[in-house]
Design a protein around this nucleic acid. Structure first.
Length: 897
RNA sequence: GCAGGGGUCGGAUAGCCUGGUCAAUUCCAUCGGCUUCAGGGGUCGAUUGCUUAGUGCAUACGUGGGUUCAAAUCCCACCCCCUGCACCA
């Protein structure tokens, strides 16, 4: 069949007849779902299509079942990527140009992108999306589309959403540490990093040491308990330090760290520059213990990390021990910095922590065991540090030297120590990452505390409980993901919901903030219900006041007053209200698993916050995995991204649809294999052929085989319907493409030829197969449906119904016995070689009767001259070797000669 | 570190929650036969070993142990793999 021609034909018919434009119909039950709003900085590839096609298949299934089904699609442009892409294009970035070109942008388009900017880019790709979705045969009501951040009335809707949330106390303001790029003046997310993926801001204790002159040298550490074992400080002699006024104190810190403190809400007045070398040899007081210790040179000290001042605890820190030993063995270095070698050599480790399995100085032990010779062996040192740190943290106990903290476990006392030290002004704290983070712009990042940031108060216990209540009444496919949602709700903390850059809607009460992407795409499904009216009547956004939305979505207020102040006709307001009331809630949301811990969960938070009444909460979530291509992850670098358009061009939409949707049905990754495409291609051809041939069936009488076929049809309908219902498309399609079609083939073969088949039953079987496949292969479905003599669209049903009573279990069992008997005959013949005559002995009359109809078929199948059947108890039977005695029910005895 | 998921006969998947009917589902792959079939067609058979007139036995479901008349399925320990951890779509 010419798939492309057929697909074009039906796409046009659908579009002309508008059957996918869904309006309120109070007489019919509705079904509302939407495709997860795609981000338009490119074009759909096979990855999107897995999730999206599953959604369309489900919508089509529901539509065929008779639901007034609305499948809505909008588009997403909120955030940074589109803006970023345009920026990169301006700089002539090759990868960006290639990416866009791969999706079909021309040189001229690229020029337009640069000149006309982000909104143009978004609209450009949106149109491509619409085209591709249509080519795929998605049954979308396009009257309801919009683009977030770009469609003004949608932005108005988001303003209403945030005003409402704020009124209810769900939006709060606060400070928050983020990893910050000073160069870009923005937070640096994981994906924006050249180095340091997975790093997050950590609060370090800042231990203070005082020079005799009064200046403070602050050392950042995660191990404040080791303050009792500090033997010296390390300063990088080559680095530049500054004296800086911090509060009432003067600190000596590396020049690089000044900006950090400023970004962490400390006022820092920079004074004199001090070279690291000048500090070497001076003494400071450990203000916790009162001990005097010396400052030593350490070139390994990174001035850009923390404060550039490091405290040395050789007993418990491998780096410090190795560095100290290195210096003690280096007379030249000591001389160079004017150090008294006797003093340096006199420094010995001070033990602070008792650690099982180790002696007094775990760091020394492990360094020696690992044979670490110099501070240059950073890999080994990092390992050693990590081992000691973990072990001491979990099992170490503080010794007597720690005064009132003696006998406490490190893990128990750490927080208390920091608190005590800070309270007594012996220490401060600062934010830093454990490992360096480098921004894509190659700048080194540090932690900044953002002020006046707006948050969604996801930590709110009552809010969480409500979400859990929502989860309890929802359906999940597969059921296992319910747990993931519950866990997400538990660990979710306050979520920053606004940024200062990118596309988006401004917070109505604080215009310098823009609502962030994951926060403006959580209740947009509600907007679909009213988008039709807004788009059709071109309602200007100013008329969509908060009062209007309150009335439409919440049923609050007096419509007469609202209409007057908003200058909007009451009728239109009522129309929107009716649409919302009819279509809401969302009956099914299908999505990829990556959205479980964010978008899908946030959507629940927002729904329960805005709509108190559970009637409006989402009904069901379905989650699927990602798509790999022949076992490999799709990525730009591997060059294996498969744009949807090129696949449709190559194979036609129906084949792509059925192959991708049945490639997997749980949350594991789905693999796109061209091999499976072949399988379906031949199955569909066979079905097509059946539609051509079925009319040749002439028989009117009904025999056992017909009853068998009838039973198989019923089982297939049942199996397919039940599995589709749970979006288990792979299992469902097995009933149709493999079981049902296979059994039809078997049926025709058993009848000898199509001509001998029962006319009505064969037609019914074929018609059933066409319909059960139609959600997957809608174009072919329409074509075959038409060829079967139907006048209406198969897309509108009716879905085949099933009746358990039509399944004749006895007949099914007997046919299975027959298949098994064939196997047995085969086996015996293989062992004995060819035989002329066959004799079969049955225990029951039931079997004997059934096989009477099959004698000729079996004889022909094995080329026997003669095939006779007997009841095993028959006295007159022919049975020279007494085989009949071995017959059992379901296993007739065999004699061959 | 915190949280979740998983390791099944060449590949991919089902079954395990509610132990036995599981040598284990289904698709694919490979090999062989057939179909006047020649190269993305259909169909039948084989793909742990031995044995056999359609059978039976022994090994098999990450590793090691346990519970039980009986375990892929329940319990314990261990090894390995994957995913998410936020201001980013």
């Amino acid at each position: 069949m010419d798939f492309k021609k057929v697909e074009k034909k039906w796409r046009e018919k659908w579009s002309k007849s508008k059957i996918f434009e869904t309006d309120v119909d109070q007489k019919k039950k509705k079904f509302f779902t939407s495709i997860v709003i795609p981000y338009v900085n490119g074009r759909p590839h096979i990855g999107h299509s897995f999730t999206n096609t599953r959604t369309d298949v489900y919508a089509r299934f529901k539509r065929m079942q008779g639901f007034n089904t609305l499948l809505a699609v909008g588009f997403h442009a909120t955030g940074e990527p589109i803006v970023g892409a345009v920026e990169r294009l301006k700089k002539g970035d090759k990868t960006q140009i290639e990416t866009f070109k791969m999706y079909g942008a021309t040189d001229k388009d690229i020029k337009d992108f640069i000149v006309k900017g982000p909104k143009f880019v978004a609209n450009y790709w949106m149109n491509k999306f619409v085209g591709d979705f249509n080519s795929m045969g998605y049954s979308v009501d396009w009257r309801r589309r919009f683009v977030t951040a770009i469609t003004p009335s949608f932005n108005r809707f988001i303003e209403w959403q945030y005003n409402t949330l704020r009124k209810k106390g769900y939006v709060i303001q606060g400070t928050h540490p983020v990893i910050w790029c000073h160069h870009d003046q923005s937070p640096t997310g994981d994906h924006d990093r050249l180095k340091g993926e997975g790093e997050s801001p950590t609060e370090f204790a800042l231990m203070k040491f005082r020079l005799d002159e009064g200046e403070i040298l602050p050392c950042a550490t995660l191990r404040p308990e080791t303050i009792y074992g500090v033997t010296n400080l390390w300063i990088n002699p080559d680095a530049e330090y500054v004296g800086a006024k911090v509060g009432k104190e003067t600190w000596i810190i590396s020049r690089e760290s000044v900006q950090k403190f400023r970004d962490q809400l400390k006022s820092v007045e920079v004074g004199a520059t001090i070279s690291g070398a000048d500090l070497i040899g001076k003494y400071v007081t450990n203000i916790v213990t009162g001990n005097k210790i010396i400052i030593l040179p350490g070139k390994f000290v990174d001035a850009s990390t923390a404060t550039g001042v490091v405290m040395s605890v050789p007993s418990h820190a491998p780096y410090d021990y190795v560095a100290l030993k290195e210096l003690q063995g280096n007379e030249n270095a000591m001389k160079e910095y004017g150090l008294d070698s006797n003093v340096v050599k006199g420094i010995g480790p001070v033990s602070v922590i008792k650690l099982e399995g180790y002696g007094d100085h775990p760091a020394i032990e492990i360094s020696e065991k690992m044979g670490i010779q110099s501070t240059a062996e950073t890999e080994k040192l990092d390992d050693a540090t990590s081992v000691i740190y973990k072990k001491e943290y979990h099992t170490g106990v503080l010794k007597g030297i720690c005064g009132r903290y003696e006998g406490k476990k490190v893990s128990e006392v750490k927080d208390l120590l920091i608190k005590d030290f800070v309270n007594h002004k012996l220490a401060d704290t600062m934010w830093e990452t454990s490992n360096p983070v480098v921004c894509r712009c190659t700048n080194k990042c540090h932690v900044k505390i953002l002020e006046n940031q707006w948050f969604l108060k996801f930590s709110d216990k009552a809010w969480k409980d409500k979400v859990k209540q929502c989860i309890a009444q929802m359906k999940f496919y597969p059921e296992e993901v319910r747990l993931q949602f519950l866990n997400t709700v538990d660990w979710l903390d306050d979520k920053a919901c606004a940024r200062k850059s990118g596309l988006g809607t401004r917070l109505p009460w604080d215009k310098e903030w823009i609502v962030e992407t994951l926060s403006d795409s959580v209740i947009y499904m509600a907007y679909y219900t009213i988008a039709k009216t807004i788009n059709k009547k071109k309602i200007p956004y100013e008329k969509l006041t908060d009062d209007v939305f309150d009335y439409v979505f919440l049923g609050e207020g007096d419509i007469k007053k609202i209409g007057k102040t908003a200058k909007l006709s009451e009728m239109l307001i009522e129309e929107m209200r009716e649409e919302f009331e009819y279509f809401y809630p969302l009956d099914m949301r299908n999505s990829a698993k990556e959205l479980v811990p964010n978008h899908l969960t946030y959507a629940l938070f927002h729904h329960v916050a805005i709509w108190e009444n559970p009637r409006y909460w989402p009904k069901a979530y379905s989650v699927n995995g990602f798509v790999t291509v022949s076992g490999e992850k799709m990525s730009k670098s591997k060059g294996n991204i498969l744009p949807l358009a090129s696949l449709i061009e190559k194979y036609g939409a129906d084949l792509v649809r059925i192959t991708i949707t049945t490639s997997n049905e749980n949350v594991d990754d789905a693999d796109w294999k061209e091999d499976s495409l072949k399988t379906f291609s031949s199955r569909l051809e066979y079905l097509e052929n059946l539609v051509k041939e079925y009319k040749k069936a002439k028989r009117k009488s009904v025999n056992n085989l017909d009853k068998y076929l009838e039973s198989v049809v019923e089982t297939s309908i049942k199996g397919a319907t039940e599995n589709y219902e749970m979006l288990k498309f792979r299992s469902g399609i097995q009933y149709v493409a493999f079981q049902l079609l296979g059994e039809i083939r078997h049926y025709i073969e058993r009848n000898g030829s199509i001509k001998n088949c029962n006319k009505i039953l064969l037609q019914e079987a074929v018609s059933t197969a066409v319909r059960l496949l139609a959600p997957f292969t809608p174009h072919l479905g329409e074509e075959l449906w038409e060829k079967l003599g139907n006048k209406k669209f198969v897309s509108l049903g009716p879905w085949p119904t099933y009746d358990e009573r039509r399944i004749d279990r006895a007949i099914v069992e007997l046919e299975q016995i027959s298949k098994k008997l064939q196997d047995d005959l085969n086996n015996v013949l293989k062992l004995t070689g060819e035989k002329k005559n066959a004799y079969l002995y049955f225990v029951t009359d039931k079997e004997l009767d059934y096989f009477k109809e099959s004698v000729e078929y079996l004889r022909g199948l094995f080329n026997f001259k003669k095939l006779e059947i007997y009841k095993a108890s028959d006295a007159k039977k022919y049975d020279p070797e007494g085989k009949a005695s071995r017959a059992k029910y379901g296993k007739p005895a065999i004699y061959l000669e």
